[in-house]
Design a protein around this nucleic acid. Structure first.
Lengths: 110, 110
DNA sequence: TTTTAATATTGCAATATTACGATAAATATT
DNA sequence: AATATTTATCGTAATATTGCAATATTAAAA
């Protein structure tokens, strides 16, 4: 149906998938990596950096912001974006948690 | 257009987004967590565990397998799935890498 | 060999995502 | 005030995803 049956899964499972979906696009991975590379907190430079139209970049930024992966601070008529470390830590925690459990039990089959 | 302009991004950025997209659905997060919880390597139990039709579960399993996140071993007429630790480590590495860099530089704005 | 069990594939309808031009909104600059 | 700059939003076309019934495939069991 094109609609996920979110009500059948736990809040945590849904939250995790929402965060990952926000990063499940090369442009959004590129935005995160660019924010990480650039020393000062850039603003519209992202538009120049990426091979996408301004409207498209703005949409991707909104998705990242809605998911809580980046934060934006208004500075004059520009906006200054950066990665939200707290949210990032949450995602990292999910992957590390699974990795630790994988390590403990020996994946039996395969 | 509904099609990502993948050719404009690096192979690594594309690879990362493909892996994350495979996990960007609550059912697929649930599958991974179930595989982690269950001690023995289960087979079709996933279908009983999840509130989705068999065909739907099979599709999700295929997506996870195509992305390399899970592996499947044929055992008789059943199939035994488990998490691919190597791929998992790769994703974990991405998130940890960014977290470490975030720690080094102090995110200036926001 | 027939039947049963487990999994995969196909086809399709409903919905979501992606991208961008056009335009709006907000602030800076002149 | 008029203009320029920056970012967001709207509308829309192209494409992708989700979910399931129906059916196919494969191997065990009878």
């Amino acid at each position: 149906m094109g609609i996920s049956k979110t009500e059948n899964f736990t809040k945590k499972q849904n939250d995790t998938s929402v965060l990952l979906k926000a990063l499940a696009h090369p442009a959004r991975v590129a935005i995160v990596e660019y924010l990480l590379k650039v020393d000062s907190c850039i603003c519209g430079d992202i538009v120049n950096e990426l091979p996408l139209a301004q409207a498209t970049v703005s949409q991707h930024l909104r998705e990242l912001k809605n998911a809580g992966i980046i934060k934006g601070a208004i500075e004059g008529n520009a906006i200054c974006y950066c990665i939200d470390e707290k949210t990032w830590g949450k995602i990292q925690g999910f992957f590390t948690g699974v990795a630790v459990k994988l390590d403990r039990k020996n994946n039996k089959c395969c």
